[in-house]
């Protein structure tokens, strides 16, 4: 894309995660909800039924519950690269809340923007990148330009003159062989 207004970035990995060992990039998650308002009822259901499973499976993620009166439910995720993401969950039911929590758990913490390329490598070439002298005949290095050898067009066929001269050679060689035999 050539539009500079729409943010885009290359794929980034935080601290070469996965090269040594995989570290879950989510460090803490805060569930904000209201204890009585109807909008937080799905969030309350999630906390009652699904939160324990999540914490047991992910001991590396610190979970906080922050009840806030008269406020809509939301989730705040903090990642190891220092970024903080807030997700509003009002109107979202329990399966969707589970999916969003799972999304936060599996993220790298990097801001979501359009990808320029969905791959990245530190070593794009092992054979080396092309340069003008890579496949050049080394004889050219020692020639003094302009040179007739590298200037002349490479002729593939035979002209009429060439054929005539060849015939002459054949005839003269057969004559000489005949004379050789005669002499003998």
């Amino acid at each position: 894309m050539s539009n500079n207004a729409i943010p885009r970035d290359f794929v980034k990995n935080v601290l070469q995660n996965g090269v040594g060992r995989y570290v879950c990039q989510l460090k803490r998650i805060t569930f904000r909800f209201c204890k009585s308002h109807g909008g937080s009822r799905h969030m309350r259901d999630f906390i009652e039924n699904n939160l324990l499973e999540f914490t047991q499976k992910n001991p590396g993620v610190v979970c906080y519950l922050q009840p806030r009166r008269h406020r809509p439910p939301s989730v705040v995720a903090e990642f190891l690269n220092g970024r903080r993401e807030v997700m509003l969950l009002s109107g979202k039911e329990v399966p969707e809340i589970c999916k969003w929590v799972e999304h936060m758990r599996t993220r790298s913490g990097v801001q979501i923007v359009n990808m320029i390329q969905n791959n990245h490598t530190e070593t794009p070439s092992t054979q080396g990148i092309w340069h003008p002298f890579m496949f050049r005949d080394s004889e050219m290095a020692a020639t003094e330009f302009p040179s007739k050898k590298f200037s002349q067009i490479q002729v593939t066929g035979k002209t009429a003159t060439d054929l005539v001269l060849e015939e002459q050679l054949k005839v003269s060689s057969s004559e000489s062989s005949d004379s050789h035999i005669e002499g003998k």
Binding site: R136, M140, P146, F150, S151, I153
Partner: peptide
């Protein structure tokens, strides 16, 4: 100069 272009004809 470091190279020569071959002629056309």
């Amino acid at each position: 100069v470091s190279g020569q272009i071959r002629q056309v004809q």
